[in-house]
Design a protein around this nucleic acid. Sequence first.
DNA 1: TCCTCCTATTGACAATCATCGATGTGAGAT
DNA 2: ATCTCACATCGATGATTGTCAATAGGAGGA
Lengths: 115, 115
Amino acid sequence: MTIRQGARVELAADGLCCSSVLEAPLGEAEAEGLAQVLAALADPVRLRLLSLVAGQGEVCSCDLEAPLGRSQPTISHHTRILAEAGLISGEKRGKWTWWSAVPGRLAEVRRALGA
Amino acid sequence: MTIRQGARVELAADGLCCSSVLEAPLGEAEAEGLAQVLAALADPVRLRLLSLVAGQGEVCSCDLEAPLGRSQPTISHHTRILAEAGLISGEKRGKWTWWSAVPGRLAEVRRALGA
DNA sequence: TCCTCCTATTGACAATCATCGATGTGAGAT
DNA sequence: ATCTCACATCGATGATTGTCAATAGGAGGA
């Protein structure tokens, strides 16, 4: 994940487009895509990370180590996974990478989870 | 998971009660609980299993092997995980175990995932 | 230029997980 | 009692995952 200066990190986040879990039966491909996003959410550290980012608008990675109690490589690992799931996106400005929640992505997940 | 005859299988499903991911910051305990339920959902086979159960009202385990393309022990493994997450519940009648979606549980997850 | 700071990547390790074959269990049927 | 069927459990295995120390990359400042 090489981030150029000023470039938004918007990593391949598949649509989660049409059907939901309650519109049975869920297809294999749709299940695969939804499972991937849910796997990104299925970690307590990433849930709290997303919560922090969503609550503060913009957060740099260095401000996440202390509240989450994890090392810098681990934080980088988790931001990467959340970004790949389309849940957050990062912008590199100067030495810092600023992370923010992708608007509507969580709503997309909720919608895929049912009516 | 020993299921007695006629007894509903309702395995310890914590409340997911109050706060949501968007009400930052999410506490450690709440993140842990939510992550556990999301982990149960973060598998394509389990998503399709839940979809089948929700769509048909009541399904016995034997009717899941073919559409999901997994062995009987694997199906049993997945039903157990979904039941422990409070997403489905099983009732043993005769030789069969009938699974059905727990009403409102998925809505609880959606609510915990944001407004 | 060199130095410092922030972040991404690599490599390794322990833990967890999805899967299946083999076996155990318990209920109905003969 | 014995047989059969549906399901749970056990044991093993290959794959994935969360974590951190060490290292690399890249930007700003002196």
